[in-house]
Design a protein around this nucleic acid. Structure first.
Length: 976
RNA sequence: GCGCGCUUAGCUCAGUGGUAGAGCGACUCGUUUACACCGAGUAGGCCGGGGGUUCGAUCCCCUCAGCGCGCACCA
């Protein structure tokens, strides 16, 4: 006799417990699934055929894999996440019930720039600013922030019912992942696919970093368009503020209007800040129809101009700085912000009679940072670029330290690999047109800037020889060396020269030393070598307190003996002895020449370095000592050093690597930049599988795992399910990286879902107040209802409309299902409910006769089960859900149950209010009893089928009902 | 400029070369011992316009219109 179910399904009471039951069963992990099946006596198959399809004849050995798109660890989950969780969980649960070796691998993304932006806002609220923070402190804070978010996210994924294998969970900053990312970078570097180059990049003046083309959005707007007289020409521009240095005037070679001018011809003309010599350039990139057909170029701040300048080998000059202010080249406008300067520049040109006319209503699009809408300022910078269309160098392949994995990509570019794989049908796309969109993008693909000037991310594993600039990639530093300036004294504050005088640290100096200690705590510092002067020594002691390092005083590291200038104010010193202090050889009266000072400190520096080879050391000393050491290390001339003095390199760090092959120096500086997040997440499918069970490849003497059990078993993965908005950002990159590193596509099927919108098609946003919190509605209506609402009526690629009404509708369905079960279980007071999917346990006694209607109902249930499965296999999840929903409610409940209800009630009247069985109205005869028995069997059977077909969509309620029927087993692993 | 889609009931969307479907909403009626978070039923559509292929087109082809999206250009 079954306990009667409550009249209402109470999701709050059961969801957490059900999830715990699943999780503790261990069956989220496919390794346990396999064992379990063996026990059940399922035959082992040797075939390791990888099926991307959720085929019906699966063996546990057939893998089914989804790598979860790792949510950004910078906030909590929103409805978009709920969509992917639902879709992927449906596919995963179906595959598992189908008997596949099913892996859904969860993870989280550090989401470099995105997280940095979120964190910047948080800092701003607190009145802080990342540009005033040191790298280590900022890193630590963001790390803690993301770890916290990650924890919340994990619990939210559980709440949504995600049946993923937590034992394989990965974070993009896990050391093993980072190592794999580094290896890929190194391999690409050796193959000539990644290069450091001074290219024109898109710079966000607010975020102070470069961005990729994908991180920029176009904004259409109306601006003034100015026509200026530039010598005999009229040039048009919307950006007068860039025009200061324009000394090239470009026109199309076929433009008859200007045929009298020859390429390279020079002419003198009057320009913004005075006379100028301009050079004529003929270039076919010019559009003769646009404006006057003539323009001047600013190669430093325009992609098109940059290209022209490169073609003709022209000079390039920076006009606007990184913060969007004009540089000294702008003369009187220097230091002004662009928008402030623009009208003033126009006014000046007008007064000079150089303004021909102004078009006030010029419609054009400008490029802006996708996060803050700040206008992008193109800049020329040395950065790392992935060459998308460059063919792999065969030569490099041979000398590659990394194994090639039998991949032969000779003469093929990353783009070509991806295009070939997409066109060859190795991957299926849902919706199908996604393939066309991808190919079109690939055709027009451009090199990818992967350097980001932020702290949060995977730091680029490239080191530059401090002496000759030679690049080393993917090195392993042996030790770190810090050159640190002592804290401030009152003399520093008053701008007086110290020499060997000994004033104490002031309060600011002590505080600064404290921040150094905090910062250096990130490394295991073994020794602090310090100038023996009090200010340095005191600083060293404070640092030592934070690091437990040994202090070694060294008199030779004292600053320069300035003799007579000791205690003198800098202004006075400059007036009296300026030339001496600018000179290499000359010594001030009673003091040292720079040459002698440099010799003294350099030899001390070398000696200490030899003594403490391969240990992390800090050298606390004086600014001029640091400059002297840098001068020698970097082989600067005196002039170069003086020019750099303003940089105030009070904190300089070096990595010690194997000596440079070119110049024998072993001090290196690591590229301060980090990778574009997508550079690491683009490697996610193979990186997660490789990292989860890495094995070392001893044969090749390589410390990098090139394969793993998981990679062999689960790669290529079955499905990549993600939002269509990151088709280029992510999917395209995963295809390229996957092919490049493993020779295989990373996934067989790409399924893209749309954006979640509200019922009025509005994008959800906090400011509109139409945001539905998935966890909130799950709490109110039950997770199953939310999942159904997200799946119903939604096709791949289309936007998903959701409203609370819709969710409420599926909550009603959950109640309906609950009551179906309640009704059937109510009549099970005689016979245990049986499970049609376990034939030995379920046999309808032969003596019972089935009517044609009985048979029809049973056959129909089987048919529906097959059809729902087929829909899932064809990635028509919405149709599967709809079919299951419709069948269960309108066929099973409305027709079948109603059909059998009287037969049951004749034998066993329903339970009374208090749950006790009522007495039959009269003693039923044999036929009546048999009919009731058949009815029970049929209803049991169809109930089980209903639970099975609904389980992927509504896992909690179905498992919860199943628990009442069969408390010892899980519906989750029941064969479909 | 290049590319990709979409247009079917009031709304959201399925769908198929052979008489148009679901959910929600609307309306009518019913039921209260599985479920009112229920049941039975009704209304509502020249399947965007035009042309073609076909015995037959909502479906295939062409074209036009409207809407949406992506990419590029943007002096």
């Amino acid at each position: 006799m079954h306990e009667p179910l409550d009249p209402r399904y109470n999701h709050k009471a059961i969801e957490d417990a059900i999830y715990k039951k699943w999780e503790s069963s261990g069956y989220f992990n496919p390794d346990n699934l396999a064992t379990k099946n063996k026990e059940r006596g399922v035959k082992k198959s040797k075939s390791l055929t990888k099926n991307s399809k959720l085929t019906s004849s699966a063996k546990r050995e057939d893998p089914f894999t989804i790598i979860m798109p790792p949510p950004n660890a910078n906030g909590s989950l929103h409805l978009g996440h709920a969509v992917f969780v639902t879709l992927q969980d449906i596919m995963t649960r179906y595959a598992r019930m189908k008997g596949k070796k099913t892996l859904w691998l969860p993870g989280a993304d550090h989401a470099g720039f995105e997280t940095q932006v979120v964190f910047d806002k948080k800092l701003e609220k607190e009145g802080r600013n990342r540009f005033a923070m040191d790298r280590e402190t900022l890193w630590k804070e963001i790390w803690d922030f993301t770890q916290q978010n990650k924890k919340v996210m994990e619990s939210q994924l559980r709440k949504l019912g995600a049946s993923c294998d937590w034992s394989r969970e990965k974070f993009t900053l896990d050391p093993d992942i980072v190592r794999i990312v580094y290896d890929t970078f190194e391999k690409m570097y050796r193959d000539g696919l990644v290069e450091r180059d001074a290219g024109i990049i898109s710079w966000c003046p607010k975020h102070q970093t470069s961005l990729s083309d994908l991180e920029i959005k176009d904004i259409e707007r109306t601006d003034s368009f100015y026509y200026f007289r530039y010598g005999p020409f009229t040039i048009g521009t919307a950006r007068p503020e860039t025009k200061f240095g324009d000394k090239y005037v470009v026109m199309h070679p076929d433009d008859t209007r200007y045929k009298e001018y020859k390429n390279g011809e020079q002419l003198h003309l009057e320009w913004i800040n005075g006379p100028l010599t301009a050079t004529i350039i003929k270039d076919e990139a010019m559009d003769m129809e646009f404006g006057s057909g003539v323009m001047t170029i600013t190669p430093w701040h325009s992609t098109v101009d940059f290209d022209i300048a490169m073609r003709h080998g022209l000079d390039k000059e920076q006009v606007i700085d990184e913060r969007g202010r004009l540089l000294p080249i702008a003369g009187e406008f220097a230091g002004m912000k662009i928008l402030e300067a623009r009208p003033k520049i126009v006014e000046k040109l007008r007064l000079k009679g150089l303004l021909a006319r102004t078009d006030e209503a010029y419609r054009h699009t400008v490029r802006a940072c996708y996060k803050c809408n700040t206008l992008i300022e193109p800049q020329i910078k040395k950065q790392w670029f992935v060459r998308m269309t460059r063919a792999l160098k065969t030569q490099a392949q041979k000398t590659n330290r990394l194994p090639a994995n039998k991949i032969h990509h000779h003469g093929v570019s990353l783009r070509d690999m991806a295009v070939k794989a997409a066109t060859s049908g190795k991957m299926k796309f849902h919706p199908t047109h996604a393939k066309k969109i991808l190919l079109h993008w690939m055709e027009n693909i451009r090199d990818w800037n992967i350097s980001r000037q932020i702290v949060w991310g995977i730091r680029i594993p490239a080191w530059f020889c401090a002496s000759c600039g030679e690049i080393k990639v993917n090195a392993t530093p042996k030790a770190k060396l810090f050159l640190v300036r002592h804290g401030e004294t009152d003399w520093n504050k008053e701008e007086r020269g110290h020499g060997h005088a000994n004033p104490p640290l002031n309060n600011a100096g002590i505080a600064y030393a404290g921040t150094l200690a905090t910062r250096l705590r990130a490394w295991k510092i073994e020794a602090i070598i310090t100038s023996d002067l009090h200010r340095a020594r005191h600083t060293a002691e404070i640092i030592a307190h934070g690091t437990n390092a040994r202090i070694i005083p060294a008199q030779e590291l004292r600053g320069r003996n300035v003799g007579i200038a000791q205690g003198m104010y800098h202004t006075e010193r400059r007036a009296l002895y300026g030339d001496i202090f600018q000179s290499y050889e000359k010594a001030p009266p009673g003091g040292e020449s720079f040459k002698d000072f440099e010799e003294r400190t350099w030899s001390a520096f070398r000696e200490h370095r030899t003594t403490h080879r391969h240990k992390n050391i800090v050298i606390v000393t004086h600014i001029e000592t640091i400059h002297a050491i840098l001068k020698r290390t970097k082989k600067w001339s005196m002039e170069q050093m003086i020019a750099r003095q303003s940089e105030k390199s009070g904190f300089t760090e070096f990595d010690i690597l194997d000596p440079c092959l070119k110049c024998k120096n072993d001090l290196y500086e690591q590229d301060p930049d980090v990778f574009d997040t997508w550079f690491s997440s683009g490697q996610w499918p193979f990186a997660t599988l490789l990292a989860s069970q890495e094995t070392k490849n001893k044969e090749q003497g390589v410390r990098i795992p090139t394969t793993s059990k998981d990679l062999k078993t689960f790669y290529p993965t079955s499905v990549m399910e993600t939002g269509h908005d990151i088709l280029f950002f992510w999917v395209a990159r995963m295809i390229m990286f996957g092919l490049y590193r493993t020779g295989e596509v990373p996934f067989r099927t790409v399924y893209l879902h749309g954006l979640v919108r509200d019922k009025d098609r509005q994008k959800m946003s906090k400011s509109k107040g139409n945001v539905i919190d998935p966890l909130g509605v799950a709490e109110e209506y039950g997770t199953d209802a939310v999942r159904m609402a997200l799946v119903m009526g939604n096709t791949a690629g289309n936007d998903i409309l959701i409203s609370e009404d819709k969710i409420r509708g599926y909550r009603n369905f959950a109640t309906k299902l609950w009551n179906i079960a309640r009704f059937i279980l109510m009549y099970q007071n005689k016979t245990e409910i049986h499970d049609s999917t376990h034939p030995p346990a379920y046999q309808i006694p032969k003596k019972y006769k089935f009517t044609a209607t009985d048979k029809k109902f049973l056959a129909e249930a089987k048919k529906i089960k097959t059809e729902v499965g087929k829909h899932i296999e064809k990635f028509e999840v919405h149709l599967a859900a709809e079919k299951a929903y419709h069948y269960v409610w309108h066929t099973f409940a409305d027709t079948i149950i109603e059909h059998y209800k009287p037969k049951l009630q004749k034998v066993t009247p329903p339970l009374a209010e208090d749950g006790t069985p009522a007495k039959p109205h009269k003693i039923p005869n044999k036929t009546t009893r048999e009919k009731a028995e058949v009815a029970r069997h049929i209803l049991n059977s169809i109930l089980m089928d209903s639970l099975i077909i609904l389980h992927p969509f509504m896992p909690f309620i179905t498992e919860s009902i199943y628990e009442k029927i069969d408390p010892k087993n899980l519906l989750m692993t029941k064969p479909w």
